[in-house]
Design a protein around this nucleic acid. Structure first.
Lengths: 119, 119
DNA sequence: ACCTGACATAGACATCTGTCAATATAGATG
DNA sequence: CATCTATATTGACAGATGTCTATGTCAGGT
């Protein structure tokens, strides 16, 4: 929260914005939101996110995720990285395994931005 | 509603799906949702959508939209087409002018899908 | 020390995407 | 009909993106 805005992940930068339909988005705002949407706009990543969420504590080991797709391990690794960099997944290494966890606030913020269902 | 599913826009195909975080998305479901997200995942289109929404009746003439961007007319036309094809914008021609209108249900559905704010 | 297994990174390649200039279409108007 | 104006379509091109193979890294076990 106290980090410089240059260091915020796209997710954190989106959190503040008012709903899409309320007022015209500025070019700068749009550019901050887009990376998040780009990260979601891929069928494999969408499934990855959803799959991770289905595990206990919304956290899954990469080894579990690899098997769920008919794709090479580096490809999955790449997609996980994209989701992580954008703030949709948290990453933690425990022993030899790496676990990714869903940051649901991220999705919630985006959801609010689109639907304007401001609580 | 009675149309064959092959003729549904991506928006209409998304409307039925349960929230992303509730259960693992199937490959087919993911492929139906992705086009919508892809359409949104561009700064110009995001601004276009937001800008159209800001007009009376959430409807704007293309001529108004062109001026708001530092892009060629064909480029704007292209982006509007993408948003239209995916079901986010309705299109109606009146005289020489073409008007695009926001289909807010589309965004609402997507918002629900992401946030799981099922009413 | 060595090997094995889990994951990431690098590099290559084909495809997709955003943009433009040029051209087409189609109403309105003289 | 000729022309102007609004919008769409086409074709070209540079840059982004998804995927793979090959390789690197790092932690445990023998």
């Amino acid at each position: 929260m106290s980090k410089s805005s240059l260091l915020l992940t796209p997710t954190e930068q989106v959190a503040c914005c008012s709903p899409l339909l309320k007022q015209p988005l500025g070019a700068d705002e749009a550019s901050r939101i887009t990376p998040l949407l780009k990260a979601l706009a891929d069928p494999v990543r969408l499934r990855l996110l959803s799959l991770v969420a289905s595990y206990a504590d919304q956290e899954a080991c990469v080894c579990d995720l690899n098997d769920a797709f008919d794709l090479s391990q580096p490809t999955i690794s790449h997609h996980l990285k994209v989701l992580h960099e954008v703030g949709l997944l948290d990453r933690s290494k425990r022993g030899v395994w790496v676990y990714y966890r869903v940051r649901s606030e991220a999705l919630a913020d985006l959801s609010t931005l689109l639907g304007g269902v401001t609580a």
